[in-house]
Write a protein that binds this DNA or RNA. Structure first.
Lengths: 136, 136
DNA sequence: CTATTACCCTATTGATTTAATAGGATAAGC
DNA sequence: GCTTATCCTATTAAATCAATAGGGTAATAG
């Protein structure tokens, strides 16, 4: 299952990408428009900012805004930050590889073999989609 | 993440498929060979039996065995039984569809659009793999 | 017929993760 | 210096996961 964190994060990014200009949008407005708990959204936007997707401005007229154009924001990167590893098992993860402690030989493991294919096909989708693509 | 239930279930199916004949194999032996908690495996094999993948025999010389040939066991079916819905959000699920309560129009939803692609590519992999395929 | 074997079933627990809430600190602007 | 809105930490309620406990039931061997 996709976590709410990821779902809300994607919706917020989409909302910001849909703005005409790059003027800051307040958390409260995004939360209201997208039906998201404001406090929860607050922490999500913070991690998106810390990972270089968003900029922010404090005080009156403040809020969050996209740092890059939607065409330049790859889903691969967004998903890794919001949802974590793309692979369903650590032993087929590119960025978070870990050996299975219960598996003597992962190249003979049927789970490994199947999940490797899933990782590749999933990755292909994420690499083919930018924020601009899912906005249209 | 793939649940241990699914991981163990796949390993058990693979183990049974690798047997020369279709003679019953005891839970204890599968658990030992695959490093799985025996009691946990017990419940997993039970659901695989209830869903038509395995047969069982009680008493001495008893155990579990495959009901079909590995070539005829599709990963799509196995994964749905062990892991549940293949889709990451209910609003793109074929077998477990549910409307998002927070989403006014799912055809304009960016999450829906992305997850629809993920569902399709994931399904394609599962449909292309039988138990025999991941055994080789 | 009886003891043994091994599957069958229910309930409970501990650990972890998820989603959300609370409350205040910090910085920007008028 | 007051208001606005982000920033940050801690806590909690609920759900899920993985495993354990303990006994019931059916089949087989001798």
């Amino acid at each position: 299952m996709l976590s709410k964190k990821t779902k809300y994060g994607l919706k917020a990014l989409t909302f910001l990408a849909a703005q005409k200009d790059r003027v800051p949008v307040q958390i409260a407005e995004i939360a209201k428009q997208e039906n998201i708990s404001q406090k929860f959204l607050e922490s999500i936007l913070l991690t998106l900012k810390k990972n270089g997707f968003l900029g922010s401005k404090k005080g009156k007229g403040g809020g969050y805004y996209l740092l890059k154009e939607p065409e330049d924001i790859l889903m691969t990167n967004v998903m890794r930050v919001l949802e974590g590893p793309i692979a369903m098992v650590p032993c087929v993860s590119l960025n978070f590889y870990e050996k299975c402690e219960d598996c003597p030989n992962e190249h003979k493991c049927s789970v490994n073999k199947l999940m490797l294919q899933i990782r590749d096909s999933t990755l292909q989708v994420y690499r083919n989609n930018t924020l601009a693509d899912i906005l249209k």
